[in-house]
């Protein structure tokens, strides 16, 4: 098991180098100038050139690349070109917000998605099935930024239950939860849709299996057949889907964070991109890639708990 984990972590290194290289190249292909972002449009060409030198942007690209690569492997992701603060500290400031949001989104997704998926599978082709399927299709196709504005209009403006700006003081638990509800629901709705659909298809397959029919024939109560016999065996594909869609969730968290003005990794990436903060963007992307690798690893490890037949080698 430990050998397996170490092997998987070692495999992450080339992935991280590839991500780093891609991000490094792509951000520099797109025109833009961090010095202009800092100094504004009235700055003269001389002042801009001086700042570019100060930022280290005038050294050859290949040198910049290796400096960053070696730094990253020493755990030093450099400093933001604009704020001058270490990239790691910029990330650590917003990471708790992203963790809160992602966990809450996944929890909402699982708590509502799995039962709804089971329900649609059990009552296949019934009115319940159709309603839930339409709902999940809606969840899949509805843009996250639009649902976010609708949630704000209803629950913030109309009922005044939650704030529009989700930027809590993390040490205040009540405020932290209060500010989390709407963004988490917004993200959760998408996750519910995904999980409902994959639970449904996975359950439908299992429900057709002989052992389920046998269990029913033996007179095992229906609820037990569904939860103990069928759902348990349908879980592996569902766990895979949850792991896979964490990537989707992160993508949608960017939009959610923007509309709710919530600090987070997604918003940090977008800001860095629009301001051409090369070092910050590179750093955050590497951390993101690392998170995805870890999440995938955890997903794979979960198989062993869900299905003892799965061995990690």
């Amino acid at each position: 098991m430990l050998k397996y984990v170490l092997k998987r972590l070692a495999m992450a290194i080339p992935i991280l180098i590839a991500v780093l290289t891609l991000v490094f190249v792509i951000i520099r292909i797109v025109p833009g100038d961090p010095a202009m972002v800092v100094l504004g449009d009235q700055a003269s060409a001389e002042a801009l050139a001086a700042l570019r030198t100060k930022m280290g942007l005038d050294v050859p690209l290949i040198q910049q690349y290796f400096t960053f690569l070696f730094g990253a492997f020493r755990g030093d992701l450099g400093a933001s070109l604009l704020s001058g603060r270490p990239v790691l500290s910029e990330v650590m400031t917003v990471l708790p917000y992203t963790i809160d949001l992602t966990i809450a989104g996944v929890v909402i997704g699982i708590v509502f998605g799995v039962p709804l998926g089971v329900l649609t599978a059990v009552y296949r082709n019934s009115v319940t099935d159709y309603i839930i399927r339409v709902f999940s299709l809606f969840g899949l196709s509805f843009p996250a930024f639009y649902s976010a504005i609708l949630l704000i209009l209803i629950f913030s403006i109309q009922f005044n239950l939650f704030p529009v700006i989700s930027d809590p003081d993390l040490s205040n638990y009540g405020e932290r939860m209060n500010h989390l509800v709407l963004p988490a629901v917004n993200l959760g709705l998408i996750m519910v849709a995904y999980i409902t659909r994959s639970t449904r298809s996975s359950m439908l397959e299992v429900l057709r299996e002989d052992y389920v029919r046998t269990a029913k024939a033996k007179g095992v109560p229906r609820f037990v057949v569904i939860t103990r016999h069928a759902l348990k065996n349908a879980l592996i594909p569902i766990v895979t889907v949850i792991g896979l869609y964490l990537g989707v969730l992160i993508g949608n968290s960017v939009l959610t964070e923007i509309v709710f003005n919530r600090p987070g990794l997604g918003k940090l990436i977008l800001d860095a991109l629009s301001e051409r903060d090369y070092t910050l963007l590179q750093g955050v992307m590497v951390i993101y890639a690392f998170i995805i690798v870890i999440v995938n690893l955890i997903t794979d490890l979960t198989y062993g708990f869900v299905d003892p037949r799965v061995k990690h080698q």
Partner: peptide, 11 residues
């Protein structure tokens, strides 16, 4: 974001 700035103002 202009929309959320306005919504927060209205709220």
């Amino acid at each position: 974001d202009e929309a959320s700035r306005e919504l927060a103002f209205k709220n």
